[in-house]
Design a protein around this nucleic acid. Structure first.
Lengths: 266, 266
DNA sequence: TCCAGTTGTACTCAATCTGAGTAGATCTCG
DNA sequence: CGAGATCTACTCAGATTGAGTACAACTGGA
């Protein structure tokens, strides 16, 4: 290795020609449903298809910075602010892009509910799309098998983006178990019910309200009370609820485990 | 993005010049201690320093295949066999290699105890090195902060490999909690005590033998009995123990949680 | 050969955690 | 104003956990 590397330093064309891109799986919750940020491709290949936002890593740009740039460009937001952004995985199958060898470093982002991206800001059309509308299989499945969208699904994703999205969803589901990142989907202050709605949307499962309440309050550093309550009760009645903000924990201990993982175990 | 991509397809030099490599954090357990596979660099930069095995991804090679190739080359083993190999993360800070922009897709491997790599097989010197001898900080820490090895540590790792190793160790510790991959560190048949030794080596913590025993046997699909027992008792006495092999579970449910994560929580 | 010390395995027991259900007060909507 | 929904706090039985006890089987050294 070292020999090659050293020589190659003097002749960059000795390296296999590879392009490095970042793609971003940006998730948010709207109307109680999980949405992902997609852009419509304006040129071939996959012209007209929806794809994850992404692009080339610039010469002096960190991978994370490149992902942040793509995320902010496409959401129309100026700072990372309350976003959560982490690296997801890299995808580099030789044939994943028909034009040339492209290795994509995928990232995963959690965002609070945002206004629709300003359509005029870019030639591309960007939109928050309900994840359910994309017809992904329920479980992410083996990392090596391709992810097929359900037949009849209106929006087919370009490249291997269905696989990347599936991996991102599975990672998101896991992250909610042992980190307090669910709070990144809400505003700075939230009710326990809002937090529960986040878990239900991401996990696709309804949770026992009482047990969830008890559990969230019992995990040290998950949430802290603001002392205030909502101005009004819920849309369909019920008392005003107390408001909380994110605590200082970086890991939930003990974790909130999602129900019924038995199926996926074998 | 799509515009640029399309144009660039006809002029590969429009892409920023980036090299893509794989690096492998290969772990095994020897004499009850966690070891990592390292190679000594034969040329600049970091000449003479130890580094993770790795190298360039070949033009038609999958990322995983490249990692497998490097792993097998350096261990002197011919097939992946009972290895576990997964992608860890990608590292692409613009200055991480002084020669040019290099994005490395790091992988994590678990191996059973292997003979020392045949020294003559390659110009490079490869060795299994006890992780403790590398003086890494106990916790992986924030992903963005550099990992500094303890002063006075004899083997300084090249590039950002200390950070990659630290991330690999943290991932390995977590994986043992909720997957049955500890069995990849043992031979095909093993005793519960051997399995416990794996956990203790990776977690750096001693475990209650009785509780560990109960827990392992109670998790469905973790291990299955072979019916046989060891030929002899332990080296320092004790009865012969029953032999087990890996079961068919891919996830442990419920998980084996490592003790005292409280500290790392905030 | 025997003994001291170690180990594998199986218990017990109290403390904790979990899922499920109940209950009451509070609020919205019609 | 009444029906229905929701937030929050309880209760309770069952499961899980950490810690300790018990004992037979085994090794190495005396």
């Amino acid at each position: 290795m070292t020999e090659e590397e050293y020589l190659a330093a003097y002749d960059p064309r000795a390296f296999p020609a590879v392009a490095v891109t970042v793609d971003v799986v940006a998730l948010t919750i709207r109307d109680g449903a999980l949405h992902v940020l997609l852009v419509r491709r304006g040129g071939p290949p996959f012209e007209g298809a929806w794809a994850l936002p992404g692009g080339f890593v610039q010469p002096d740009e960190d991978l994370r910075a490149a992902a942040a740039r793509e995320l902010l460009e496409e959401t129309g937001v100026t700072t990372l602010g309350r976003f959560h952004l982490e690296q997801l995985a890299s995808y580099g199958a030789p044939d994943r892009d028909p034009r040339m060898r492209v290795v994509s470093v995928a990232h995963l982002a959690f965002a609070p509910d945002l206004p629709d991206p300003a359509a005029g800001s870019d030639a591309r059309e960007a939109a928050w799309v309900p994840v359910d509308a994309l017809g992904l299989p329920d479980a992410a499945g083996s990392r090596d098998r391709p992810v097929r969208q359900r037949p009849g699904t209106s929006r087919r994703l370009a490249f291997d983006h269905a696989r990347i999205l599936a991996d991102g969803l599975e990672r998101a589901r896991g992250k909610l178990e042992y980190t307090p990142l669910a709070t990144r989907f809400t505003g700075p202050e939230f009710t326990i019910a809002e937090l529960r709605a986040v878990y239900e949307a991401v996990w696709g499962d309804s949770l026992h309200a009482g047990n969830f309440h008890r559990k969230v309050l019992s995990v040290p550093g998950f949430v802290e009370s603001t002392g205030a309550t909502t101005e009004r009760g819920g849309t369909r009645g019920g008392p005003r609820s107390k408001l909380y903000r994110a605590g200082d924990a970086r890991l939930l201990h003990p974790a909130l485990l999602r129900p019924s993982r038995e199926e996926a175990v074998r």
